[in-house]
Amino acid sequence: MEKAKNLSPDLFKPAQIEKKEQDALSRKSVGYWQDVWGRFRSNLGAVLGLSLIVLTLLLAIFGPLANNYDWQTQMLDVANKESFSDHYFGTDHLGRDMWQRVWYGAKISLTIAFLAAFLDVVIGVTFGGISGYFGGRVDMVMQRILEVMYSIPNLIVIILMLLIFDPGIVPVAIAMAITGWVPMARVVRAQVMKLKSQEYVLAARTLGASHARILLKHLIPNVMGPIIIAVTFAIPSAIFFEAFLAFIGLGIRPPEASLGVLINDASTYLQIFPYQLIYPSVVLSIIILSFNLLGDGLRDALDPRMRK
């Protein structure tokens, strides 16, 4: 205290800092998606999932180029042989090359899953967006429809739909999308309801933007995160259902091949030729696993609040 009294005011002078300098940012600003990428990259499971997905996609597209067979030519003289020369995965009971069939099947399964997920997004976002944005009576009615849809077991709907349609890639995807969009609609509705009272929506409306424009250009882009998460979880469940349907004889049918068809074929000969079951099963499980890992990672990265 004594010492403090000895200090004279002229020892101090105001620091000279330019106004501009004060405002300058000391480090580079990080955008939302950069931030997400940063969190995603540091998550081992998520990176592993993404790498596995890229790998299976590449193999499904370019894998068949690795040997000179195709997925449907029968070579009965070499039937039921385990991996030999350039039949990397061996041959099945009709002498068809398993390597070709597994990747062809993976391509079909993935196509169905992506198509189903795409339909989920289109229907779910439209329904959820309209329901959440307009609210009131519109929302009331749409919610009741959603609740009934939600309580109808999707297994039953899919089976019924496939009894009417001829099984094929598009019908299977449509059948899955009929109930598949419901979770998507719920997510989008909840988010849109939360966001629609934000200032930027009010600003857009004051400037005379139409409802459609507000919904499409202002609200949906801000709901992208939850939509992406929902898609990553919709894909593995579609792949599972495709395999399941093929297994009970309702999905893709032989001679067409999907992973489900291959697993079904192989399970007949399981006791004698187990390798025929192992390859498609492992590929199927890896695809589902990697999408689940990716989904978990994206959820943590896109919405850190949900992280536990």
Binding site: A243, L270, L277
Partner: peptide, 22 residues
């Protein structure tokens, strides 16, 4: 947990049936 969610029960069934049963 992740494996259990990802591996479909019919794949699990096939493997169990082969390894434990056969």
């Amino acid at each position: 947990a992740v494996l259990g969610v990802s591996v479909p029960s019919f794949v699990m069934g096939g493997f169990l049936s082969y390894f434990v049963g056969v």
